[in-house]
């Protein structure tokens, strides 16, 4: 479904991706994990065509995303759903209208049919009863579920999840984990979950990529990655404070620094 080859991307001076290769299989839940700041969200934006790579190829469903014209990119995006970390709901319209939004923008469904469709999507995420609430009245977990209903409103082929579990209580987390897996299987989606919540993500993923410092450090089915001998994978999966990813930010020698006196520089 998604094929990335030799992707390079830098943000100002900082190199985010230094030639990564990645394959997302259709119909599967693929997790992309890595510490904060490794550019996981950036990767989703590159796949969605919101950012342009410095070099390399990103093919989604056979189409080279960075080379697409605007109309072609928009056509492709209609078949992609994206769940933002914040939910990104439109704050001035109700939950119902938020889910109806992409449908209204892209189709001319009669109002009755639209209503049924929106209620079905809301039912799928368990929030049909919240249809009339405003986004400000929702908890963080509910907002994400509404955003999920909106992401699947146009029946996409693929859904991209940006940190879906961050800041969720255990119940909301459980709901989201279940929803991502079940929607993927029931709707025949391809899901890409970007996360650093190891346990939850590994539980539902069919395949895992571990990213660090612009490279893919490990990949494989979750069990294989867990068994991996890579010191970096072990550190990340078990949450050890020190290891290949150092506890200390790079600095001068500690003793020299203390004896030198004066300011920080």
């Amino acid at each position: 479904m998604v094929k990335i080859r030799g992707l390079r991307f830098s943000h100002g001076e900082r190199m985010i991706f230094d030639g990564i290769d990645l394959d997302i299989a259709p119909g599967k839940v693929t997790a992309i994990m890595g510490p904060s700041g490794t550019g996981k969200t950036t990767l989703l934006k590159l796949i969605g065509g919101q950012l342009h790579p410095a070099s390399g190829s990103i093919r989604v469903h056979g189409e080279e995303v960075p080379a697409l014209s605007r109309p072609a990119l928009y056509r492709l995006r209609k078949r992609m759903g994206m769940l933002f970390q914040s939910g990104a709901l439109l704050t001035d319209i109700s939950v119902f209208e938020n889910v109806a939004y992409p449908v209204r923008e892209h189709t001319r469904l009669p109002e009755r049919l639209l209503r049924d469709l929106v209620l079905m999507k809301l039912q799928a995420v368990g929030l049909r009863g919240a249809a009339d609430l405003m986004p400000a009245e929702l908890s963080g977990g509910m907002a994400r579920r509404v955003a999920l209903a909106r992401a699947i409103a146009l029946d996409p082929m693929m859904v991209l999840y940006d940190e879906p579990f961050t800041g969720q209580d255990p119940i909301s987390m459980g709901i989201l984990v279940k929803l991502i897996r079940e929607l993927n299987d029931a709707l025949g989606l391809t899901s890409i979950v970007v996360s650093h919540d190891v346990l939850e993500t590994a539980a539902i993923a069919d395949y895992v990529y571990l990213l660090s410092e612009g490279q893919v450090v490990d990949h494989g089915p979750p069990d294989a990655v867990r068994e991996s001998s890579s010191a970096w994978s072990q550190q990340f999966l078990e949450g050890r404070p020190d290891g290949p990813a150092a506890f200390h930010y790079p600095a001068r020698d500690f003793r020299d620094d203390l004896l030198r006196g004066g300011g920080v520089n």
């Binding site: 709901l89 439109l90 923008e105």
Partner: peptide
């Protein structure tokens, strides 16, 4: 700031037009 414009773009809605 709340990613609503990005969200629109990803829904294939042009925020400049909309």
């Amino acid at each position: 700031a709340t990613e609503q414009l990005s969200g629109m773009e990803m829904m294939a809605v042009d925020p400049v037009q909309r």
